[in-house]
């Protein structure tokens, strides 16, 4: 191929690349739900008591996952690593406990006492809250241990690091809330952020960021406490942010006040204009796989 032609091709490719980059940036802002993949599980009171529901991330195929008689409430659902099972908290049987159900439905199985549970990256363990402490349970053996120090009396919302044996969680004391990092083997937690009522931390799939909530907004922060960034900015209250499987978006709840009612929205993890995912009833505690 002549040199000049080769340059021509190179420039053509360059021009195409520049065009793609520019249109891609613009397109990313305008993107709605249509291109989003995966399934969002959430708890909703749209059928009466709080039950688990599923919806495709593009907003289609809304369906109820858990059924029940009476007033038991199913909340805090979270997918396992391949998205085939859902762990959740429920008052079924009269006492708050951790349950699991297949994504396709069926009969839920009670695992243990506690709430706010989450799977480890290999699905072999779960971390959860019991008596305001953080516990880890090995599912095959049923072995359990407390991992949060005694000096942290009000812990909540443990979430596993996707690649390392560590957890992030929130703790509350008289002065306010903070989010921490802690090795699952134990040891003193390290503080990530302690302002504006920070809680509900959750790692992005690559472990590079923690998605968390303040009193009013969803934010991201690096595990070392740097690059703190407010992602949602709307009026009202935003809660329960969870990253998408590709780490590019966050699904969260938008409420009129801190008491709700709540609707699910999706926003780019870099921020931007959100898109409404659900409406009707009050929809909370989303997780996305």
């Amino acid at each position: 191929m002549p040199v000049s032609t080769r340059y021509g091709l190179i420039y053509t490719v360059l021009a195409a690349a520049v065009t793609l980059v520019l249109t891609g940036l613009a397109g990313a802002q305008a993107q709605g739900l249509a291109e989003l993949k995966g399934t969002v599980v959430f708890s909703s009171d749209r059928s009466g008591p709080w039950r688990l529901w599923l919806v495709n991330a593009d907003g289609s195929d809304l369906r109820q996952l858990t059924q029940g008689e009476g007033e038991e409430n199913d909340v805090d659902p979270v997918f396992n690593s391949d998205g085939t099972k859902v762990l959740f908290s429920s008052t079924r049987g009269g006492k708050i406990g951790i349950w699991a159900i297949e994504k396709t439905g069926g009969t839920p199985e009670r695992i243990c006492d506690g709430d706010q549970a989450e799977w480890s990256a290999d699905d072999k363990q779960i971390a959860f809250r019991r008596d305001k402490r953080i516990w880890v349970r090995t599912l095959a053996s049923g072995d359990e241990k407390v991992v949060s120090p005694e000096s942290f009396p009000n812990c909540s919302g443990p979430a596993w690091h996707p690649k390392e044996p560590s957890l992030t969680f929130a703790a509350r004391w008289d002065g306010g809330n903070a989010i921490f990092l802690m090795q699952t083997a134990g040891g003193e937690p390290t503080k990530v952020y302690d302002k504006k009522g920070a809680c509900e931390p959750h790692f992005t799939p690559d472990g590079a960021l923690i998605v968390y909530e303040t009193e009013t907004n969803i934010c991201t922060i690096q595990p070392d406490g740097q690059k703190n960034r407010t992602i949602t900015f709307q009026a009202g209250v935003q809660r329960y942010g969870r990253p998408s499987p590709d780490g590019q978006h966050i699904v969260y709840c938008q409420g009129v006040t801190e008491k709700g009612p709540w609707e699910l929205y999706v926003v780019s993890i870099k921020g931007g204009y959100p898109v409404k995912l659900t409406e009707g009833g009050s929809d909370m505690n989303p997780d996305w796989k």
């Binding site: 504006k196 009522g197 303040t214 009193e215 009013t216 907004n217 709307q234 009026a235 009202g236 209250v237 938008q254 009129v256 006040t257 801190e258 009612p261 959100p274």
Partner: peptide, 24 residues
Amino acid sequence: DRTQATPLNEFLLVDLMRSTLGVG
């Protein structure tokens, strides 16, 4: 204050209280 139909980009007095002082 807000109603459920208040646009998300309209910040009212109660919104400002929440996002600054952290309380309603």
